[in-house]
Nucleic acid binder design. Sequence first.
DNA 1: TCTGTTACCGTACGCTGTACCTTATGGATA
DNA 2: TATCCATAAGGTACAGCGTACGGTAACAGA
Lengths: 217, 217
Amino acid sequence: MSLSRAKIAAAAIRLADAHGLDGLSVRKIAKELGVGPMRLYDYVINVSELLDLMVDTVYAQIAEAGQHAEWRATVLAIAHRTRAAALDHEWFADLLGARPHLGPHALAVGESTAAALSQAPGVRGIDDLQRALGALNAFIVGALRIEVTERRAARSTGTDVPAWQVSLGPYLTRMLETGRYPTVAWLVVDGAHLGAGETFNHNLTTLLDGITGHPHP
Amino acid sequence: MSLSRAKIAAAAIRLADAHGLDGLSVRKIAKELGVGPMRLYDYVINVSELLDLMVDTVYAQIAEAGQHAEWRATVLAIAHRTRAAALDHEWFADLLGARPHLGPHALAVGESTAAALSQAPGVRGIDDLQRALGALNAFIVGALRIEVTERRAARSTGTDVPAWQVSLGPYLTRMLETGRYPTVAWLVVDGAHLGAGETFNHNLTTLLDGITGHPHP
DNA sequence: TCTGTTACCGTACGCTGTACCTTATGGATA
DNA sequence: TATCCATAAGGTACAGCGTACGGTAACAGA
C-alpha cells in the first residue's frame, strides 16, 4: 500500500479530529500510516503544506454546497457547510484565516461565494463585491473561531452556570463582583444561553441585510 | 533587578513583535531577561498563561479608547484601537479569538463595547445585545486575522501584481487561467487594491447598520 | 554485465516545554 | 548564638518536535 497526498491528509485529519492540532505531529501521522516519519516529506514540503492540504480537503466538502438560484440561498448554504465543517473538525476553525486559502477546493468555494454575492442588491461594482466578500469572510472566520473556542471552554468546565462558576469562579466571579463590569455581569448572569446555531444564522442575516442595505423580508 | 509578570510580558512582546509567535520560546524570553528558563515558571503556570498575559497587556492599550457620548463613536474607537494593536503586534491577531479573553483589561474592553452596543437603536433586550456583541466581535476577530494574513503574504512576495504573479504565479495564475474561477479571477485582475483601513471601516459601518436596522446618515 | 540515476530509508541535530532534583537563604526557636 | 526547618532560587535532564542529510537498494540504459 503506497502513500499518497490523499492518504496522508486523511490520516492527519483523523488524528487532528481526535487529539487536536497540538496532538498532531509528523511522527504520529507516519506511525498511523506505518511508515517512517521522513516518508511524508516525499509528498509534502513541510508541515505548513500538510496543514494546507488538510484544509483544502475539508473545503472539498464545503464546495458541495453548490449554487442555488437565489444568491442568498447560496451564501447561506456555504456558510452553513463551513460551520458544520468547523464543528466536525475543530482544528479547521483554528486554521481558518490563518493562511491564504488557495487550494483548488478553497478557490471553488470562493468562486461560488463571490458569484453569489455579485448578484446581491446593493452590490453594484467590483469594489462593492470586494468589500462584501471581505465582510462575509471576516464574519464567518471570526464567528466560527469564537464559537469553537467557547465550545472547548464549555467542554472543559461544564456548561451549566454552577459548574462553570466553580471552575472559573474563583477568578471570574470575583472579577464580576467588583462591579467594574456591570454589563458583562448582566450578560453572564441574566443572559439566556442562546443556541449558537441560531445566533450564527441571525447574525449572518444581519450582516447580509447590512450589505444589501435593507432587511430581508 | 528581580522579575515580574509585567517584565516577562514586555520581553515576550518585544520578541514576538520581532520574530513572530513561532520565534518565541521560554528559553529566548529567559535569555532576554538574563535568567534561567525555569525562572519564568515562578510567575506563570505554562506557556498558555504567558500568552494570555501578553494578550491582556495589549488589551490594556485598547482599553484606553474610553467611552464616548455617542455609542457609535465608542464602538468605532475600540474597533480602531484593536485594529491598530493587531497591526502593531501581528501575533495578537493570531491569538484573537483563540482563547477566552478573561483578563482584567480584556474584560474592561468587553464592558465598554457591551455598554455602547446596548445604547444602539435596534438593540432592545439582553438577547439582542448578546447577538450584536457576538456579531461585532466575530467581524473584528475575522477581519483582523485575515488582514494580517494577507499582509504577511504580501510582505513575503511583494504586493504589486507582477511580482505577485511571479511568486504565486506558477500555481495561482495557472489556476485562474483554467476559467473555473471567473469571478475570483475578475476580482484579482481588475480589482482595485482598496485600502485595508477603509475596507475595515466600510464593513464595520455596514455591520452596525445591519444591527440598527437602518443605514447610518 | 556494468554504470548512472532515482527513489527509499533512517539516523541524528538542534530545538521545544517543563518535571523535578539540588542547593542556598531567611526566620524562628532553644 | 547555634540549630533546624520552610521556602525559594537555580539548573539539569527528559521526552518529543520538525526536518537536513548521508547511506542503501532498486532499476533503466549501454
